[in-house]
């Protein structure tokens, strides 16, 4: 009897939660008809936003991988007392409200803030309110997802394999390239895809740090944010596109990790 009750409670709670997740997605899909989607796809503003989003999210993901993969490896290899604190600090931007991340970026890279004057002296153009700012915002907010995935993937490489490689005379560089990377590849790829999907959806930090200009810094989320009050059809069409792209990336990520679809 108590087991049956437990089973019922499990199913009820799980059903409620799944419904909560599924309903908004369903509502968006129901709101968009093929005709409105096609109309949205013919609008140049939508294409500009889609193009800019794909470009910036890909750039942000590649740059995150370039920096966070070495970082994850160092954190895995070196056991220091500060590792826990350091990891928390590095993962913090993912937990912060994106607007806070955007404000931090403005105060760090702004023309008259921390680094800005120095960048100007080096002859560099301003960072804020440019596509570069879009990429930086996405990196800051989405990067922790890759760092976490990369650490898990690298830590799963058995130390015995590394020792065997060293015994056989391979240096650290060779071991990393020939042993660690191939073994960690599924986890790293999966992490990169999740990071890409998060970068694609970034809004708060982008609005604050990069602004919003069609064809320059307006990503899909910012286009949705600015147009939804006046042109709900366009906003819903863009949302559905974003939904499909993210779903594709997440499915692919599961596939990379070797999970059943």
């Amino acid at each position: 009897m108590s087991d049956r009750l437990f089973g019922c409670a499990l199913r009820l709670l799980a059903g409620c939660y799944a419904g909560l997740v599924a309903l908004p997605l369903l509502a968006l899909l129901l709101h968009a008809t093929p005709a409105t989607l096609a109309a949205a796809l013919r609008s140049p503003v939508v294409w500009q936003a889609v193009g800019l989003s794909l470009l910036t999210a890909t750039a942000a993901t590649l740059l995150v991988v370039a920096g966070a993969l070495p970082l994850a490896w160092l954190l895995t290899r070196q056991v220091t007392r500060w590792r826990g604190l350091l990891t928390t600090l590095l993962e913090l931007p993912a937990a912060l409200p994106p607007a806070v991340a955007g404000l931090g970026l403005l105060l760090a890279f702004g023309r008259y803030q921390l680094l800005g004057p120095w960048l100007t002296r080096c002859g560099l153009p301003p960072v804020a309110l440019t596509p570069a700012a879009v990429v930086l915002a996405q990196m800051l907010v989405a990067g922790p997802l890759f760092l976490r995935a990369a650490r898990a993937a690298l830590e799963a490489v058995p130390p015995r394999v590394l020792q065997a490689s060293a015994v056989l005379g391979a240096g650290e560089a060779t071991t990393f390239r020939r042993i660690v990377l191939p073994l960690a590849r599924p986890g790293l790829l999966g992490g990169a895809l999740v990071t890409w999907a998060r970068a694609l959806g970034e809004l708060g930090a982008t609005l604050l740090f990069a602004g919003n200009l069609p064809g320059w810094t307006q990503t899909m989320p910012s286009a949705i944010f600015v147009t939804w009050q006046v042109d709900r059809t366009a906003a819903v069409s863009l949302s559905v596109l974003l939904l499909l792209l993210s779903a594709g990336a997440l499915l692919l990520a599961r596939r990379c990790a070797g999970e059943v679809l």
Partner: peptide, 21 residues
Amino acid sequence: RVVSAEASVDGVLHKVRLGEA
């Protein structure tokens, strides 16, 4: 010359005060 089209006057003023615009 426009580098951003903000979602409210607050956004415009914020960027001008900071000197980003």
